[in-house]
């Protein structure tokens, strides 16, 4: 980001990313409501807002605001209150980094790849903090699972992103998307698969939702949360879907590349990201939960070797000048 940016522009960009942060997760959430319902032969929300329940999540938000703010007696008060913010704000930062339009990301820093990885990693810490601060055994078990998750799945994510960074020869997300070529679709395919699976795990989305497995752990680290704080956790989850879908679209699907990308490049980015989000929802409906040990096995015996192989392949490709 150049420092020549005026305060007005900074404010505008901040407002824009905040607006996207508050609206896109709701769009994904509503899509999940409806798509999951239809995949199960139901209709999903039909009343809120009048037309096919479009305002269901707004109504949910209004409900969450009215709920009582419960603080467990033995909870670590400060951390307990802080945890939703730890989960939420990093995704806001990460969303600001995602390239949207040719030459446009809300924040354009030289090493945005690194910042992105750090931000999403910190976001996953929110669950760990929440589980620890709740003073609840289910929450604690969930938090420990989340921690194991974090350790296992951060590495494949970093390696697969590193592969793209190597291929594009840059650490800037904007530059990487700029240099994206259609043949990357094939060349970076293993890395793309690894990233998508690891992103699911990072978001603790089914089938990798062992940390919040409601059948065994009540609600995992969210057990003690209710009302607005719980809503923030949910928002963080869906914001995470948005951020990682958009990143996947930008790095592996070419982001804004498409017909008339100079005018409607942002539309392409959003469409591709939305398609990825739909896949994430689809997977949730279709597949059962993976056991905690199966999850570790998948990460260390499949994803990490695969990501390393992709990295080697990318290295060969760069040297050969593909």
């Amino acid at each position: 980001m150049t420092l020549t940016m005026s305060w007005l522009e900074i404010a505008l960009r901040a407002v824009a990313v905040l607006a996207a942060f508050l609206s896109l997760p709701l769009l994904v959430g509503q899509t999940e409501h409806k798509l999951m319902a239809h995949m199960q032969g139901r209709l999903g929300p039909m009343y809120a807002g009048g037309y096919h329940g479009w305002a269901q999540l707004v109504a949910d938000g209004a409900k969450f605001v009215q709920k009582e703010d419960v603080l467990p007696a033995r909870a670590d008060r400060r951390l307990y209150r802080l945890a939703p913010a730890i989960a939420l704000i990093p995704y806001l930062v990460a969303l600001a980094l995602v390239p949207i339009h040719p030459g446009v990301a809300v924040i354009d820093v030289p090493a945005s790849v690194v910042l992105f990885v750090v931000a999403t990693g910190v976001g996953a810490l929110g669950l760990l903090v929440a589980g620890w601060a709740s003073a609840n055994k289910y929450a604690l078990i969930g938090a420990l699972r989340a921690a194991a998750h974090l350790v296992a799945y951060e590495l494949p994510i970093v390696l697969s992103i590193a592969s793209v960074a190597l291929a594009g020869g840059s650490l800037s997300l904007l530059t990487l998307t700029q240099r994206w070529q259609p043949h990357w679709l094939l060349w970076q395919l293993p890395g793309a698969c690894v990233f998508l699976i690891a992103a699911l795990a990072e978001l603790q989305r089914p089938p990798f939702d062992a940390p919040v497995a409601d059948a065994e752990l009540v609600m995992g680290p969210w057990t003690e949360y209710g009302g607005l704080r719980f809503a923030f956790f949910l928002l963080a989850e869906y914001a995470g879907i948005v951020v990682l879908s958009l990143l996947f679209a930008a790095l592996w699907l070419g982001g804004w590349h498409g017909p008339f990308s100079d005018q409607v490049g942002w539309v392409w980015t959003l469409l591709k990201g939305y398609a990825v989000a739909v896949v994430i929802i689809w997977v949730r409906v279709a597949w059962p939960r993976v056991r905690a040990d199966q999850l570790q096995r998948l990460a260390w015996l499949v994803l990490v070797p695969l990501a390393l192989a992709q990295l080697a392949l990318t290295g060969v490709g760069v040297v050969m000048g593909w």
């Binding site: 995949m39 032969g41 689809w282």
Partner: peptide, 21 residues
């Protein structure tokens, strides 16, 4: 099995739902 699950859900999504309004 995984593909089967995806196909099943997609096919159900494309059919009219069973909900009685």
């Amino acid at each position: 099995g995984l593909v089967h699950g995806l196909v099943t859900t997609a096919r159900t999504a494309l059919r009219p739902s069973h909900t009685a309004e």
